[in-house]
Amino acid sequence: MSTHVKRAFKYRFYPTDAQTAELSRTFGCVRKVYNMALAARTEAWARQERVSYHQTSAMLTAWKKTEELAYLNEVSSVPLQQALRHLQTAFTHFFGKRARYPRFKSRKTSRRSAEYTTSAFRFHDGKLTLAKMTEPLAVVWSRPLPGGAKPSTVTVSQDAVGRWFVSLLCEDPGVKPLPATGQAVGVDVGLDHLLTLSTGEKIANPRHERRDRAALAREQRRLAKKEEGSANRARARLKVAKIYARIADRRRDTLHKITTRLVRENQTIVIEDLTVRNMVKNHRLARAI
């Protein structure tokens, strides 16, 4: 059995018009199947019955044979099956009291994504081709994959700004345990500062955070004044989404750098056990928390 760590390698890509249409259709079918299976399981739950993944898989086969849902046959079956597996995982977490009851996917707010397993993609000589597609994706390989990498799953997604991403899950033999340091550090999450360490070091909030927030508030005010359903509102919504994406990208980058440094420098990291869910009810402090 392999002891290698699996890592996801995420890249931007630029689909052709045909690939965009195919992926958009797939996203819609994934959402439809997930919601229909969730509805079926919810109805059963109300009758105090449980529905298994295999039962939802049988439902999917039956749905495809109906005239109303025949369009589900037009996309790769693998992302649809994966949607049912993800729903099963969500219910497992719910029954294990680790998560809330699964929620329906919304056309407007839910993440647009589809997951492909090895039978539904081909990766050869640095070219990735998905099921139902004739051409490989135009991926920007911004960093190399591990030598001889064979992705086990490929997830395609599109964010609110319209950027396309592909994430390849691969075994990475290059990941090795860090040498033991004997160092320990306590981390306190603050409001004035991002983090305060037990060493006395204070890590400030990113400088650009306040500037980005001001720009976001300005564009949100403009969006609120636009007429529902108008082209101007669509443009304003995209501006707001772009600022949100920039804030999320910068925050992710900052936190990744800080956590990587803390893990490399310390053997033990102690974090205060906060009841975050209750704390964020204070709307004045929610964003800082």
Rank of each mutant, 00 (worst) to 15 (best):
118 T>S: 08
24 S>G: 06
61 T>H: 07
112 R>G: 00
20 T>Q: 12
80 L>N: 02
43 E>Y: 00
49 E>W: 00
33 V>Y: 04
44 A>W: 11
111 R>W: 00
46 A>H: 07
97 K>G: 09
18 A>C: 04
32 K>N: 07
68 E>M: 05
94 F>S: 01
57 S>F: 01
70 A>H: 14
69 L>V: 02
36 M>K: 00
41 R>I: 12
29 C>M: 03
95 F>M: 07
77 S>W: 04
121 F>K: 05
25 R>T: 10
105 K>C: 09
23 L>N: 01
16 T>D: 12
23 L>P: 00
128 L>V: 14
127 K>Y: 13
62 A>I: 03
44 A>F: 05
29 C>K: 01
18 A>H: 08
129 T>R: 15
75 V>T: 13
49 E>L: 12
33 V>E: 05
23 L>R: 06
84 L>G: 08
50 R>N: 06
39 A>I: 02
101 Y>P: 01
121 F>P: 02
54 H>L: 08
93 H>S: 09
62 A>K: 09
68 E>R: 13
51 V>D: 02
119 S>R: 13
65 K>V: 05
90 A>E: 01
29 C>V: 03
68 E>Q: 14
69 L>M: 13
113 S>Y: 13
99 A>N: 08
37 A>H: 02
104 F>T: 02
124 H>C: 14
24 S>T: 14
107 R>K: 15
37 A>G: 15
122 R>K: 12
43 E>A: 15
122 R>W: 00
122 R>C: 10
44 A>M: 12
84 L>H: 07
129 T>S: 13
111 R>C: 00
93 H>R: 15
103 R>L: 04
113 S>N: 12
46 A>R: 08
79 P>V: 12
23 L>H: 04
37 A>W: 03
92 T>W: 06
135 E>W: 04
42 T>F: 10
88 Q>W: 08
56 T>W: 01
96 G>W: 01
87 L>Q: 04
21 A>E: 15
73 N>C: 12
119 S>P: 01
93 H>P: 05
70 A>M: 05
97 K>E: 03
70 A>W: 12
124 H>L: 13
118 T>H: 09
120 A>H: 01
48 Q>S: 13
97 K>S: 10
21 A>P: 02
43 E>K: 11
103 R>P: 01
89 T>N: 09
76 S>R: 08
133 M>W: 00
124 H>A: 13
18 A>S: 12
132 K>F: 06
126 G>V: 09
123 F>C: 09
37 A>P: 01
106 S>G: 11
109 T>L: 04
55 Q>I: 00
117 T>D: 07
31 R>F: 07
126 G>A: 06
63 W>N: 04
74 E>D: 15
47 R>T: 08
20 T>V: 10
